[in-house]
């Protein structure tokens, strides 16, 4: 796990990208997190998280076609890389393994 530690917020961002699938770009990710978490995050904070994830190689991005509703500016679509997916899986397994170790109270 060394060097690939994942913050909680970063994990949520990656999961949101996975949920959004083909339509994951700044605004939709922001909305998704908003909806799921019930917490409003700024686009700037999201940008920082995305930058960090991209630096780690967990996500990649591509520009789409320009659209008129954005003043002709292109969207930047994000997708989770295989490395990112593996890391998410690892994190999930780690947690589940730990949950399993908790003595059942029932």
């Amino acid at each position: 796990m060394k060097g690939t530690n994942l913050g909680e917020f970063q994990e949520i961002v990656m999961l949101s990208i996975l949920i959004l699938d083909e339509n994951a770009y700044g605004v939709t990710i922001q909305e998704e997190i908003d909806r799921r978490m019930g917490r409003s995050i700024s686009r700037g904070a999201l940008h920082t998280a995305l930058t960090r994830l991209e630096e780690k190689g967990f996500i990649s991005s591509d520009y789409g076609e320009p659209t008129s509703e954005r003043g002709g500016r292109r969207k930047r679509y994000y997708e989770v890389t295989n490395k990112g997916l593996a890391t998410l899986q690892e994190a999930k397994e780690l947690r589940e393994g730990m949950w399993d170790l908790i003595p059942k109270l029932t």
Binding site: R43, H47, Y63, G71, R73, R74, K75, R76
Partner: peptide, 9 residues
């Protein structure tokens, strides 16, 4: 381009 686009949207 990306960020201003998102902000505007």
């Amino acid at each position: 381009e990306e960020l201003e686009g998102d902000l505007e949207e």
